[in-house]
Design a protein around this nucleic acid. Structure first.
Length: 736
DNA sequence: AGTACTAGCATCTAGACAGCATGTC
DNA sequence: CTAGATGCTAGTACT
């Protein structure tokens, strides 16, 4: 094999032998920097290391010293970006390689990533960085795209495709890492990439179908499981635990996942110290929110029995507690939704697919083969399990063939989603705003480089027509003129919102401004939130039933009047939008978290996610508002502070107090109610602050460097925060 | 009367990217 | 809109 710094670095890590697919890639010429690759191999077969080899090869010279060029590692999830960032930093800092992280939940105020050699980011963030025209992009010599099959995702694939279309035209080595997909040849063909496929796995995977107490493996092995319990899944889990394995059960909804978890009780199989650990973790789960919700309590109860459920309704801290406990083998069974289907490294002995269908916006649908196979691929912990098992629980015989197809069939083909209007519109504006496209021939040339064109050469006219229609809209909305973005258009491209959303916000606010004098302050606030909620970015909305309109009829009538067009009676959507906007309204008017969760029947994790999104739109609206001349002062002030209020969940009057460290919505309200309304007031009444907020008050005063000496608060003992995994993941990249 | 169970009908349904600027209870 | 678990209610059987 060639002598290379790559192998030296691998050796430093203790890797002396490559796995078969890794070998294959090297032998096919990965180290030749001019070749692109698409590597389509199973989960856990060592994909990441292939990416790392390409990075090392490009970024380190023969002496294992950074050579000044840059590498990008693109992942689909922020959590994954953090994970990889920590991993790579640990591994490669010793070579002087500076590893950086850039994603939406990280602050890098300077936005100056030029000092890093290797940058981990998400595809959307990279898109956004390119829109801000970062100069260092020209220094990039290699880019690794993890989970590149996401190009076939309706919501997010288009963005990835645009980035890749741009990157293809640069002098960059592209390495795509993909799950097994139906048409890898087409994707690699488009990328000018050498295709590497392999079925090798580090641990053997036994696939099978089970009904009641019998497992029928595809290799025609059979296993009968003892029937201790009524429910088949209980027995199949017990069987695995008895053999010292851990399980994951995938379910099609959050409620099912929680329901499934409640069925299981592993207490009899646990040691005393394990039970102790579980009780401790259970406590931890309850302490994450100030007042535990019903959901938290259920989860805590399950955990005491060695079982957890895991889905997007949990807040991220709870999720990471569970993930850690599972990796440490304290929790032995996780019942989850597709949250765990891709991404985070959570291997187990036995994966059970409980549901074959899932409700989607277009009805009840079979879960994609690729997703099932990715779930099953988690089975088998290298070094721990002799083999992994991917089992489908067959509830009714007529699904037998479907189950077989899912276990062993060909995964779906990945096609272009660039024609998805929402993304296309956003991307066209982006391309014009960055002057990437300056005239019609640029446009056509660009479009001819897309995956869409590669797949649909015969139907090029179709997408062009769509693009011209979009251009027409963008012009009529005054976001572009000719092939040049207006100032407003440029700002909207940077804000990274759908131009249609921006346009709807502009018309909505303009109308509201004109009619504001007919509305009370409260109604203006409600209406504004309705306008900000009514767009594609904030989907899905809260489900609403017709009866709910009754409670809202008066404000809905006023919104209808101001909007100048009626809510469509045929569709429930406006009511859903309205209900969702009411949740935001209640939030910024200080309804308690628990009351909100109860009223809108939403879980804490999901609420946080939604608040994050509306906050982003509110910020965008504030920015857009700078281009509008609003006459109504109240509306203008409202817009100016709405994003801050949404972030903190407070009324206008608390905003000044919220600027103080350690003061959140609850403490701010307490202070305000006691007539302490500003930093000045705090300085004047330190004793009062202490009396109101106790120990927290002390922290606040310390931070403000306010002297106080009443009632034994003389010391300035610093409270040391216990480091948590969550906190660790959120750490800022160190620029050392 | 109180309880336990159930048939029958209604209800409800996965996940998570982006801007910007910093530390909640 | 191709399913299925769950929750609610009224009805029934039983102690």
């Amino acid at each position: 094999m060639v002598n290379s710094q790559v192998f030296e670095v691998l050796e430093d890590m203790g890797i002396t032998e490559l796995r078969p697919p890794q070998k294959k890639v090297i032998e096919s010429g990965l180290l030749d920097r001019s070749k692109n690759f698409l590597v389509s191999i199973p989960t856990a077969s060592g994909k990441t290391l292939i990416g790392e080899m390409a990075l090392i090869n490009n970024l380190l010279d023969n002496e294992k010293v950074p050579n000044g060029s840059k590498g990008l590692f693109i992942v689909p999830l922020r959590a994954l970006a953090s994970e990889k960032y920590n991993e790579f930093r640990k591994k490669y800092s010793k070579y002087g390689l500076k590893v950086g992280l850039s994603s939406g939940d990280l602050d890098d105020k300077t936005e100056d990533l030029s000092g890093f050699d290797l940058i981990i980011t998400t595809s959307e963030k990279l898109d956004s960085l390119m829109r801000h025209k970062v100069a260092w992009i020209d220094d990039v010599s290699v880019i690794v795209i993890d989970e590149i099959h996401l190009i076939g995702d309706k919501e997010r694939g288009g963005t990835l495709e645009i980035i890749l279309t741009k990157l293809k035209r640069m002098n960059v080595q592209i390495l795509g890492l993909s799950a097994t997909i139906g048409n890898p040849e087409e994707l690699s063909g488009w990328l000018n990439a050498k295709l590497i496929t392999d079925t090798w796995r580090p641990v053997d995977l036994k696939k099978g179908i089970f009904t009641d107490c019998e497992i029928n493996y595809l290799n025609s092995d059979k296993k009968v499981v003892s029937k201790y319990y009524k429910e088949p899944t209980q027995n199949i889990v017990l069987d695995c635990i008895n053999e010292n394995g851990s399980c994951i059960i995938f379910c099609s909804s959050k409620k099912y996942a929680a329901g499934e978890a409640k069925k299981h009780n592993l207490l009899k199989k646990l040691t005393g110290s394990e039970i102790e650990d579980l009780n401790r973790i259970s406590e931890e789960i309850l302490e994450v929110l100030d007042t535990p919700t019903e959901n938290c309590k259920e989860l805590a109860e399950c955990i005491k029995k060695g079982v957890a459920f895991h889905h997007a309704g949990l807040v991220s801290k709870q999720r990471s507690i569970i993930e850690e406990a599972y990796r440490n083998r304290i929790i032995k069974l996780i019942c989850c939704t597709p949250t765990l289907s891709a991404g985070l490294n959570m291997p187990c002995r036995r994966v059970i697919i409980r549901d074959l269908y899932r409700y989607t916006e277009s009805g009840y649908k079979e879960i994609p083969v690729m997703e099932i196979q990715q779930c099953i691929g988690r089975a088998g912990r290298p070094g721990l399990d002799p083999y992994g098992e991917g089992l489908i629980y067959l509830k009714k015989e007529q699904d037998h063939d479907l189950a077989l197809k899912m276990l062993d069939g060909k995964p779906e083909n990945m096609y272009s989603w660039i024609s998805y209007e929402v993304i296309l519109r956003k991307q066209i504006l982006g391309l014009i705003a960055t002057e990437y496209i300056q005239n019609e021939s640029d446009l056509i040339e660009f479009m001819k480089n897309t995956y869409y064109y590669y797949l649909n050469k015969d139907n090029f006219r179709g997408i062009l027509t769509q693009v011209y229609e979009i251009l027409e809209s963008l012009r009529s909305w005054r976001f572009i003129s000719g092939f040049t973005a207006t100032d407003l258009g440029e700002r909207i491209a940077e804000l990274y919102i759908d131009p249609l959303t921006a346009h709807d916000i502009i018309t909505g606010i303009t109308k509201l401004n004109m009619n504001a004098r007919n509305l009370s302050d409260k109604e203006i606030e409600q209406h504004l939130l309705y306008i900000l909620t009514n767009n594609s970015e904030l989907k899905p909305f809260l489900p609403a039933s017709d009866e709910e309109e009754y409670g809202y009829s008066e404000i809905i009538r006023k919104i209808k009047m101001t909007e100048g067009y009626p809510f469509e009676y045929v569709s429930k959507k406006p009511l859903e939008v309205f209900k969702t906007s009411q949740m935001y309204y209640n939030w910024i008017n200080e309804m308690s978290m628990n009351e909100l969760l109860e009223k809108y029947k939403i879980e804490a994790g999901n609420l946080n996610y939604k608040l994050e999104n509306i906050n982003w739109i509110a910020y965008s609206a504030k920015e857009i508002n700078r281009f509008l001349g609003l006459k109504n002062d109240y509306l203008h002030d409202l817009l100016k502070n709405l994003d801050v209020r949404l972030k903190d969940g407070v009324k206008q009057e608390l905003i000044t107090l919220m600027e103080i460290k350690n003061v959140g919505r609850v403490r701010a309200r307490k202070l305000y109610a006691a007539d302490i309304k500003s930093i000045y007031d705090i300085r004047q009444n330190p004793e009062k602050v202490l009396k109101l907020l106790g120990g927290h008050g002390k922290n606040i005063l310390d931070n403000l460097k306010v002297k106080y000496n009443g009632e034994g608060y003389l010391g300035t003992k610093k409270k040391v925060k216990q480091p948590t995994l969550d906190g660790f993941l959120k750490l800022k990249p160190k620029k050392d």
